[in-house]
């Protein structure tokens, strides 16, 4: 088997006495859309925070393409190719959409003098990346719109565009469809499906239609621990999962 994109070993995070994430060992294969499901408080967002570096784990390790990144700060992980989007819209409201994406694109610029006097080529490249990311998330018509004035759904799209501007290979998506109407949901699901073609994804989402539409593997978490991991069919068929979680939602 090829080297996995991301691998966790006995990952644990405590908040005081609570084990929000308990001994989670997961493997995320290259090119696969891997969804994490579970009831509220199962520790899904905490897992994303541990993978992105927003939170340090209490114990356990994280390996990205074979390299141990457990102690690496957020920005280094981003530059290695791990992008994330947030559950609560997290953009720079007073900037234009293009400038929001440009900030992501700038992370690909080398440090030092290049950030003060970039070459013409580098400038063009940043601009092209930002425009490309904006086009990817479907907001090219909104390039010069101040982000604060976007509709909720558009802000969620921008959220994804900003992440894409950092040119990630692995996408950590924390409820990308949160708070969206049906039409918006459909559009963003379509966008995710397109991105799935050439990116690895770890996806948290409550919208089961969307999950079943794009996910290839599913992990179900309960109380901070992994209940079961398998293909979509396996999880759908799993009695344990039905009992613990899907039961309520899957039955009419």
């Amino acid at each position: 088997m090829a080297e996995p994109m991301l691998e966790t070993r006995a990952l644990t995070r405590r908040f005081g006495g609570l084990r929000a994430v308990n001994n989670v060992s997961l493997t995320f294969e290259v090119g696969v859309v891997h969804a994490i499901l579970g009831p509220n408080g199962a520790g899904k967002t905490t897992v994303i925070n541990l993978l992105s570096g927003d939170l340090p784990p209490t114990s356990g390790t994280i390996r990205f393409r074979g390299r141990d990144i457990t102690a690496r700060p957020v920005q280094r992980r981003v530059r290695m190719g791990i992008g994330r989007s947030y559950q609560k819209t997290n953009i720079l409201p007073e900037l234009t959409c293009l400038d929001n994406c440009r900030l992501g694109a700038l992370s690909r610029l080398p440090g030092g003098l290049a950030r003060i006097r970039p070459s013409r080529a580098a400038r063009r490249q940043v601009q092209a990346r930002a425009e490309h990311a904006l086009a990817l998330c479907g907001l090219e018509a909104r390039a010069d719109t101040i982000a604060a004035t976007l509709s909720h759904g558009e802000k969620r799209q921008l959220e994804i565009g900003m992440m894409m501007a950092t040119e990630p290979t692995l996408l950590l998506l924390d409820e990308p469809l949160a708070g969206m109407g049906q039409e918006e949901s459909r559009r963003v699901t379509e966008l995710l499906r397109r991105l799935a073609a050439d990116h690895t994804m770890i996806l948290i989402e409550h919208d089961m239609d969307a999950v079943f539409a794009i996910a290839e593997r599913i992990t179900v978490m309960v109380n901070g621990a992994v209940l079961e991991t398998g293909s979509v069919e396996q999880i759908r068929a799993s009695a344990t999962v039905r009992e613990a979680y899907l039961g309520e939602e899957a039955e009419p």
Partner: peptide, 23 residues
């Protein structure tokens, strides 16, 4: 310059700017 654009991001939303790959 790019430096200033990143600094502007740091002022508006430091957490997000970091999550976009900036120290």
């Amino acid at each position: 310059a790019p430096f200033g654009q990143i600094v502007r991001g740091v002022r508006i939303n430091p957490g997000r700017t970091q999550a976009l790959g900036h120290d």
